[in-house]
Amino acid sequence: MAQGGIDDSLTDDRLIREIDALMNVQPSPEFIARIRTRIDSEPVPSTWFGARFLRCAAVAACVVATIVTWANWPERRQPSRAPLVAATSKVANALIEPQSQPSDIVTPPSGSGSVRVLVSPAEAAGLRYLVSALRDGRLDPNLLPDTSEELGPPMPLIIEPITVEPLVAAADVESGVLQ
């Protein structure tokens, strides 16, 4: 076979050898150096990012832990009842001392989401008088009427039967004559 030609009796081994030789080219000597340069020039945030991220995460975790601890501290939780007590005493004061709360609408501190207690002026005046009289001793609680005895047993409820009168048929209709 001439150099550069294809032999008629091309064996498997020779074909494999030739293809292997064709494929197994070598990269340039500076190939690895070029890759290293490329990799070095790439912004790899691994270490820097890892340390920085860890530091930020730790600080954030501490801040969150501090806030949660502060919010759930028992001494801080105790005053949370204070508005409720104050509101209760305020209602009582409003009922007892007319000067302190001139309005008949007893309003707890706003923003607490509590319910407004509406009392009519007459009922409020009556209650105020009753409470102040009891407190000052002007009224003996034993003299108050026992409402349970006065009321007595409930009366039976009697419902009269309803009588429905049958409708009187018209003579014309019964006879089947239509006008």
């Binding site: 270490t47 890892g50 340390a51 860890l54 530091r55």
Partner: peptide, 16 residues
């Protein structure tokens, strides 16, 4: 706190 994070970051650096 910072010492601890630095130490852990140093560990990251070694791994890298």
């Amino acid at each position: 706190m910072h010492e601890w994070t630095d130490r852990v970051a140093g560990g990251f650096m070694d791994v890298d």
